[in-house]
Computed example of a mutant assay.
Amino acid sequence: MNIRYIKRIYFRIPIILKLLMIVLITMIFFGIIIHFIEPLQFPTAFDGIWWAFVTAATVGYGDYVPLTPTGRIIGILLILTGGGLIAFYISSLSTTTLKREQDLENGRLAFHGHDHFIFVGWNERTRQLMKLVLEYYPGRRIVVIDKTVNKLTYKEYPVHFIQGDATEDDTIKKANIANANCVLITADITKDEKQADTYSIMTTIAMRGNHMTLPIVTEILSKKQIENAIRAGATTIIRSNDFMSSLFFHELDHLMQATPFEDIDQLLVQQQFSHQKLPLDLEEETFSKVVNNFLHQGYLVLGLIRDDAYTIHPKPDFIMEENDILITITNW
């Protein structure tokens, strides 16, 4: 039983550590032998071990040299065995390092960090989002899961890439979802809307099954699938088609000279939205008074939510009521 347990541990040890252990044992073995054979030349066992490493590494400082025939035979055996072991260890170390870099680029390595963002889908939207995250949260790590991309270079894109299907538990666990901060699931616009939404919903179910409290932001293309995405466990639904349709409408027909797309883009980049519950002392007050009050706190009030209905830019004399939720923007 003990031998079987030792074998199991041994075979689980990485090859680099196995080689390092063999090198250390070999150097210690030869160092101790030369110490006992030539105690005058090698007063301590450490002196012998030092000589063994220097000799096997072909450095040859010459501070310790065996003088007797027996000692020189030991030196020959050390060169034939230890020298090869050290050379093999160094070459294996180089090979392992190179393989790890390749595995990282090819998405085979699991992520072991924490408080990171997980992006499902590698596309122009996630690339632009990556730049924004790195600009505003430079210390935040990003994990990208995609089954269509075969390689991502870290130097070009500073993310941890995992190649695989985001609906499978093995892939999700590689992304270390247990310690993630948030998940963003983007729709695959190369598929038709129903297929893309089905995959997004299946991914949401898989993510929620692995982490019950994690915020999950899911992009849905069709209105018919919004309820399914909510039932699947999505915390927030991004209705990209609705947003783009409204934006197209503004571009087609706006009375005043403006650039709606650029305006909204800069608003989202430079400011962040925040919902604030109406303070008790501002109930039954006018909207203009509420705006002035929040401006002093660094918030710009755009409108309010009352009974799940949105009212944007109400009249200045609009009377605020209890349980109103203020829609505000503020600096990042």
Rank of each mutant, 00 (worst) to 15 (best):
A180M: 05
S91W: 05
E193M: 13
E283M: 09
V144K: 00
D188Y: 05
D188S: 14
L152A: 06
I25S: 15
V149P: 00
S92R: 11
V301C: 05
L300F: 14
T328E: 01
K224L: 10
G62K: 03
S222C: 13
I79N: 01
I86A: 01
I145C: 09
P158Y: 11
R239G: 04
Y157M: 15
R239K: 08
P314W: 00
E283H: 05
F261A: 09
L247V: 06
L67E: 11
I226N: 03
W332E: 11
I22T: 11
I6R: 11
E168Q: 14
L109F: 13
H160S: 11
V59K: 00
G75R: 10
E219V: 03
L98K: 15
D263E: 12
Y5L: 11
E284I: 06
L85M: 13
S245P: 00
I305W: 02
N292F: 06
Q257D: 09
P316N: 13
I325S: 10
A232T: 05
E283W: 02
I145W: 07
F88A: 15
L80N: 02
F53I: 14
T218E: 05
Q272M: 11
I90W: 08
P39A: 05
L78K: 04
I118Y: 05
K131N: 12
I201F: 03
N181K: 15
I216F: 00
G60A: 07
D170M: 14
E322R: 10
E219T: 08
R306T: 07
V301G: 01
V23F: 06
R4N: 10
K194Y: 12
M212V: 08
F273A: 06
I76D: 04
